[in-house]
Design a protein around this nucleic acid. Sequence first.
DNA 1: CTATTGCGGACATTTAGCATCCGGATTATA
DNA 2: TATAATCCGGATGCTAAATGTCCGCAATAG
Lengths: 162, 162
Amino acid sequence: MKMTEGVEWTAHACALLAALPPGIGLPANALAEFHALAPAYMAKHMQALARGGVVESVRGAGGGYRLARPATDISLWDIVEAIEGAEPAFRCSEIRQQGPCVTPNGDFRKPCEIHSAFGKAEMAWRAHLKSVSLADIATEVTRKSSPQKRAAVTVWLQEKLA
Amino acid sequence: MKMTEGVEWTAHACALLAALPPGIGLPANALAEFHALAPAYMAKHMQALARGGVVESVRGAGGGYRLARPATDISLWDIVEAIEGAEPAFRCSEIRQQGPCVTPNGDFRKPCEIHSAFGKAEMAWRAHLKSVSLADIATEVTRKSSPQKRAAVTVWLQEKLA
DNA sequence: CTATTGCGGACATTTAGCATCCGGATTATA
DNA sequence: TATAATCCGGATGCTAAATGTCCGCAATAG
Ligand code: FES
Ligand code: FES
């Protein structure tokens, strides 16, 4: 039950993009640099985000990644889905259909109780992630950060966007 | 984000134990046989359940595993915790403390928004699993199974408990 | 004493995650 | 038009974890 590191990486990257003026983006290299992450691997993750429709890519000089939608319309679940896929963590291999006591006319149309319990738990998890938007996160992070921090970020951004 | 197969294996094994008369158990071999699972690996998982306090082990001839508590007091989360551990799936490596814009007096006592959002989602997931007991599952499974199936299980159990 | 059973460690195999690199395509800019 | 910046997808290697087996030891019932 471990989530890929890439989720933390890309969630923070998206939070940074969400703090930018709408339509403005950053190249993958800059997004990696901002959190001191491996640039090549970050690039891979950003490609996955683009395939998942969370960000848009702009190729060529001056290009980069920007949010594909307003930050209010992007949830943490969208990011998880793009990076990890939509497969449930609990994978049922229908072991109830195996063994010495399976009856030939066994009725397996009804879902397994265990399977559905885990399914519902996972839906609760997803629902919570869907309820948190990038805008929520970006505003909270900005509100909580010190003036020095904000200034440092502004300077860095001006250099990167120049 | 994948859960170990062992959770499905042991959850079904515990459901079987919950259907037995209180205090009665089965050896790991029988639990594996019932769902046609790899006996040696099932034994490993049952040891983990015992370490986690979900089942009790009885050594020696005629021994085996039985539930450590009434089935109403054992939840699916107890099983997940015993097999997978209590570590959250989302592991924050505090990447916000890295990069060119971190201020020396950065205040990282406040939790990261992203981190806490994932933490809350995971708590919702656990809460749902904690709300489902083995007794719930065992009664539902028994209720839904056909008379032939119940008869086959009874015969098999008599052979194993003899 | 012997057969049964759980316990823990060692070990091998397979799979998934982490990370890098490269060639090709696209585009702004000089 | 030439050049540099940038994304894209695939190939590749490395590491960690999950999967699965085996063995010797300890406990216990008969
Ligand atoms: S058969 Fe897969 S969870 Fe029950
Ligand atoms: S620093 Fe780890 S989730 Fe924000």
